[in-house]
Lab assay of single mutants.
Amino acid sequence: TGEEYIAVGDFTAQQVGDLTFKKGEILLAIEKKPDGWWIAKDAKGNEGLVPRTYLEPYS
């Protein structure tokens, strides 16, 4: 299990392996990579890379 984050903006996948999401979606951070791209999972179970700058902790 990971930590929940809320998307603060829309993001469209730029390449294969990225995860597209919309502002307000809750994402589960699976792995926090030091380069600023995290592996996350959305509510539908889709998994991919997301930019850290689009996420804020969800409580």
Rank of each mutant, 00 (worst) to 15 (best):
A43G: 09
T12C: 12
A29S: 06
T53W: 15
L55A: 01
K32G: 04
A7D: 00
K41I: 12
L49D: 04
W37G: 03
T20S: 15
K22I: 07
P51Q: 09
K41M: 11
I39E: 02
I6D: 00
E25P: 01
Y58A: 08
T1I: 14
G17S: 06
K33P: 07
Y54D: 04
P34S: 13
G36V: 03
A13N: 04
G9M: 15
G24I: 01
Y58V: 11
L28Y: 14
D35W: 05
L28A: 05
Q15I: 09
P51D: 12
L19P: 00
S59L: 13
A40S: 03
W38K: 00
F11T: 01
A40M: 15
K22Q: 08
E47S: 11
E56D: 07
F21H: 00
D18R: 14
E3P: 08
E3H: 10
T12I: 12
G9T: 14
K22P: 02
W38Q: 01
G2N: 11
A13V: 03
D42P: 01
I6A: 04
Q14E: 10
K32N: 03
N46W: 05
A40N: 00
Y5H: 04
K33S: 10
G24A: 03
V8F: 04
G36A: 04
A13H: 03
W37T: 06
K41A: 08
Q14A: 10
E31I: 12
E56I: 14
L19T: 01
P51N: 13
T53H: 14
I6K: 07
G9A: 15
G48M: 02
I6C: 07
T12M: 11
Y5F: 10
P34D: 13
T53Y: 11
G48V: 03
Y54M: 15
V50N: 01
L28M: 11
P34R: 09
I26E: 01
G2K: 12
K44G: 09
K23D: 03
W38R: 00
W37I: 07
L27C: 02
Q15F: 10
Y58S: 07
F11D: 00
N46S: 07
G9R: 15
V16Y: 11
E4D: 06
L19H: 01
E25Q: 13
K44Y: 14
P51F: 12
A29M: 12
D35M: 05
E56K: 13
V8S: 07
A29V: 15
A29L: 15
G9S: 15
E25H: 07
E56M: 14
W37P: 03
Q15A: 12
D10P: 05
E56G: 05
A43R: 12
Y5C: 04
A13G: 12
T53C: 15
V16G: 09
K23S: 07
E3R: 12
G24P: 01
K22F: 09
K33L: 12
G45E: 04
L19R: 02
D18S: 12
E47V: 15
T1G: 13
Y5M: 06
E4R: 15
L28R: 10
E47L: 14
L27S: 00
L55V: 05
V8M: 11
K23W: 06
D10V: 03
